[in-house]
């Protein structure tokens, strides 16, 4: 049986890749996809811990995370479409008209 530690390390690697994507990507859609990657990594850790504790509660939390991710994607993509309409671009480096 593969230990929980291995799954946590894998989930950590995926999480860091997602975080780097969020920080380094300039395409807003790719930033969103990186956020999904991070959520997935956290889900993997939750499922691994659920098996370790022999409790199904972790699975219910993953279920909620997936639902919230779906809601977030719906709103986020709507935002991206709205921004694209006004600025004709989804490069997030060009979106700093709000800086002080």
């Amino acid at each position: 049986m593969v230990g929980t530690e291995a799954y946590i390390i894998l989930s950590m690697i995926l999480f860091i890749l997602g975080a780097m994507g969020v920080l380094l990507q300039r395409n807003a859609i790719l930033v969103f996809m990186s956020v999904e990657l991070m959520l997935n990594a956290a889900n993997l850790a939750l499922v691994a811990f659920a098996r370790q504790w022999n409790e199904v509660d972790g699975h219910v939390f993953v279920f909620f995370v997936i639902t919230v991710a779906a809601a977030e994607v719906a709103v986020g993509l709507a935002l991206i479409v709205a921004i694209f309409r006004t600025k004709q671009s989804i490069n997030i480096d060009e979106l700093h008209q709000m800086e002080g």
């Binding site: 919230v68 779906a70 977030e72 719906a74 709103v75 709507a78 479409v81």
Partner: peptide, 12 residues
């Protein structure tokens, strides 16, 4: 929350 997200996406 899902309902609010749906309404939000439509409004946006």
């Amino acid at each position: 929350l899902l309902l609010a997200a749906m309404v939000g996406a439509i409004v946006l």
